[in-house]
């Protein structure tokens, strides 16, 4: 059941995750896979893509980064927002221990993934990175889902002092048969791709791009011939790096 046109939902609960990040739980559900996204519309403002943090109830984590997200942060419990979707390709959930690596608000799709993986009985370790302890988001969701959570902060205010990728390297060494799932800044994703390729481990990324249609037609979210909205937003590291190195573009994406 996908929503083709923007459909109104009321906000049932709002939670501050950090000084700039807020999580909105809505009064409805859709059917989605972790990693899929919805287009959120605020009439006469704009429409932007957001990963789902959960599909029942529909839950969105929104970082304040511009005029649209600023407007979203002004919404209160009982207000409405509109969304269409879900769109795109989510994570392939593999039957092996999972290492999740989140940079900043990249935790959003991974929180949904963690819940599904745990429900399927998969062991999940999470490296959660941010600048400061107060910038770590969705940590309780990962804990409540039964994941082992390993925070990393650049200022050392909580957990490992440094990057989530440092923690990820340790987790990968401890779980040699694991699969890695990540979302965050692209520099982080590149480091993770290298770590996993050295170890021969499968790795999937959720990528973020400016989007217009969300439907795979306008070409705004092009990444070297890959459509982030339709072929992704989740890709294998090989797909992302292969496209950039200019290997012949594929036709369809499996």
């Amino acid at each position: 059941m996908a929503l083709d046109l923007p459909t109104a939902f009321r906000i049932r609960d709002i939670r501050d995750e950090s000084p700039t990040v807020r999580t909105f739980a809505l009064d409805g559900a859709i059917q989605a896979e972790p990693g899929q996204f919805v287009m959120v519309w605020l009439p006469r403002v704009n429409e932007k893509p957001f990963s789902l943090v959960d599909d029942a109830p529909i839950t969105l984590t929104i970082a304040r980064v511009g005029p649209f997200t600023e407007a979203a942060h002004h919404l209160r419990v009982g207000d409405r927002l509109w969304l269409r979707g879900p769109y795109g390709r989510g994570f392939d959930r593999l039957a092996r221990p999972a290492v999740l690596v989140a940079g900043g608000y990249g935790a959003a799709p991974l929180a949904f993934l963690a819940r599904r993986l745990r429900a399927e009985g998969v062991q999940v370790s999470v490296a959660l990175g941010a600048k400061r302890a107060c910038d770590l988001v969705l940590m309780d969701r990962f804990r409540d889902a039964g994941c082992s959570v390993h925070p990393a902060t650049e200022d050392g205010s909580l957990g490992h002092k440094g990057l989530a990728t440092d923690v990820a390297a340790r987790l990968l060494d401890a779980n040699p048969d694991a699969a890695l799932y990540a979302c965050g800044p692209e520099a982080m994703l590149e480091r993770l791709a290298r770590l996993c390729s050295e170890r021969g481990m499968p790795v999937q990324f959720s990528m973020e791009r400016m989007m217009k249609c969300g439907l795979g037609v306008c070409g705004s979210c092009d990444h070297h011939g890959l459509l982030v909205c339709r072929d992704g937003p989740v890709f294998s590291a090989d797909q992302v790096l292969g496209a950039r190195e200019n290997s012949p573009s594929p036709c369809g994406q499996q």
Binding site: V217, H224, P250, C251
Partner: peptide, 18 residues
């Protein structure tokens, strides 16, 4: 025009798609 024609890579992909 107006569909997927925003980059050389996408145009190549559509050509490879037939």
């Amino acid at each position: 025009s107006g569909i997927l024609g925003t980059s050389a890579e996408l145009l190549e992909r559509v050509a490879r798609c037939g």
